[in-house]
Design a protein around this nucleic acid. Structure first.
Lengths: 299, 299
DNA sequence: CTTGCTTACGAGACTCGTAATAATT
DNA sequence: AATTATTACGAGTCTCGTAAGCAAG
């Protein structure tokens, strides 16, 4: 038994039992991979894959159990390498982050800027995706850390922890009728066209819940995954925006004309608090700079 | 990096950084082992061992961390093999148990007998030792399960669980003066020479505690690790025996002459309850027959 | 008839053991 | 002087890629 065989097995499972695809991903030949897996099966004395003639169609029960153990072994092998790298040179390395747009655009930049002064030799790679895509990227080992407000806490196979909390805010153009009110209520808001996040993103669930608890049916005319897109359409006058306050912060010192500058309505916090979390594989050892980034994002 | 290197590293650490001893234990050559470890260090980019000239004198900090991860990896490799074996043929295998004398002699035989009817093709190997030796045998991977009344629960690196509880009992020859009393007290007991377990074994701590709580100083004239040894000297008239009730059970139907047949004194349970436990490496996957043995011992 | 797994085979890399060397205790 | 680690080197093994074969959709 050797590590190569275990890596081959894991990749084959990840590629939906397609040996050709797995071989391609591993930069090796398909016959070699096929042979390696057969030899592993021989040595363990079990069949890992259900074969229909020459096709791999499924995992056997034994195979499923074996694969979970193999995943753990390879995780620990990664830990070994990462830990050794950290002792060898804590300064250099790579940090692959997956985040939603809102995090990538608003909460990550200051943290990454700080990281870059502390660890100038660390290469940061940022991948953007939906919360569920982020979860998949972590599982597949394509990224080291995932950052999002949704979905992370529910994954039992990932470790996740709180970073910070925030509320939604309501933004419009200064010319909007709602701007003339002393205080804005949810009821008033429900009178107008609204623009906010896609259901998967940035605490949208909490927005829907707030309206339904007040027995209101909001008219959401546009859903986006992206705070900037929402703000753009608000500027075009398509409706009132509900965005993360993270995305409003810098409106204050925006350089556009006053008439186009978005304003935050005095509505308090009608939508429940959101907590942005970081997640990574259970049992994964973090390098120093990974811990530093996580600390830099907590505030 | 390969598994061989990791095994070599683990064995070297287990043999107190003596490459020669490790090579011997692994049935390989010392130069090969030396080279493998150097290559591992090169590949990881760290030094694992502190070297004074050509002697390995200590682990580096990095080395210590690496070794703990390597232990985990090799544990999981074992899990992989064991799990595969269980799927391949749940009937055949080997079961290495370490136990104290009392367990090996009294509580294990019925459990092993039952196991042998259920799994006739499993080879059972029984090692005897003190509780602390048992712990070491588990740690070193020399045995699969350890069974003892002492020491197991305190080990944070081992998983352990309760099997069953028992009390000590007091035994003498029928001719002993204590036999004439209606009920026997600790105070009465302290008047006579006593024979019981070595301090490390079979709940001896609880015996000492009971006497000291009554402000009594028992005269313990003989300490043994072995219930049978205790009983033998009680038969010789050297003193009153305090043994596990496990070791008395079968006195009832012993075939020796009535005058030599030990009797249990009516003293109730002056010594606190003991709980015998089973322990194995944390994170270790048990085979079916291993679980079966553990279940067979619970009652 | 295209996709995809397995078998066959050979070049090159690698492992590992022996022998010699060197450094501690 | 004895013990113990490292270096050198070569035989044997193993890995892995190419080419060919063959089963399934």
């Amino acid at each position: 038994m050797n590590l190569q065989q275990l890596r081959y097995l894991r990749e084959t499972v990840r590629r939906d039992l397609n040996l050709t695809a797995a071989a391609l991903a591993l930069h090796t030949s398909q016959p070699g991979l096929s042979k390696a897996i057969r030899e592993l099966e021989d040595e363990l004395g079990i069949t890992i894959f259900v074969r229909h003639g020459k096709r791999l169609t499924n995992l056997t029960d034994a195979g499923r159990e074996v694969v979970t153990i193999v995943e753990r072994i390879l995780l620990e092998i990664d830990n070994l390498k990462r830990s050794a790298q950290d002792w060898h040179n804590a300064q250099v390395g790579e940090l692959r982050i997956a985040a939603t747009h809102t995090q990538a655009r608003y909460s990550l930049p200051p943290a990454i800027a700080r990281l870059r002064t502390q660890y100038p030799e660390v290469t940061v790679r940022l991948h953007q995706g939906s919360p569920s895509q982020i979860v998949e990227m972590i599982r597949a080992g394509q990224v080291d850390l995932g950052i999002a407000t949704e979905a992370l806490a529910q994954q039992t196979d990932l470790h996740s922890e709180d970073l910070f909390s925030w509320f939604h805010c309501v933004v419009t153009l200064p010319s909007h009728p709602l701007c003339h009110l002393e205080t804005v209520t949810l009821e008033a808001l429900a009178e107008y066209d609204l623009i906010t996040y896609d259901p998967q993103f940035a605490g949208r669930g909490r927005i829907d819940r707030a309206f339904s608890e007040h027995r209101l049916k909001p008219r959401i005319v546009l859903e986006a995954t992206d705070s900037d897109v929402i703000k753009t359409y608000v500027r075009l006058g398509l409706g009132v925006g509900i965005v993360s306050e993270l995305a409003f912060e810098e409106e204050a010192d925006a350089k556009c004309e006053p008439a186009n500058r978005l304003v935050k309505l005095p509505i308090g916090h009608p939508f429940a608090r959101n907590t942005t979390r970081v997640a990574y594989l259970h049992g994964r050892i973090l390098r120093g700079y990974e811990q530093a980034l996580i600390e830099a994002m907590k505030r």
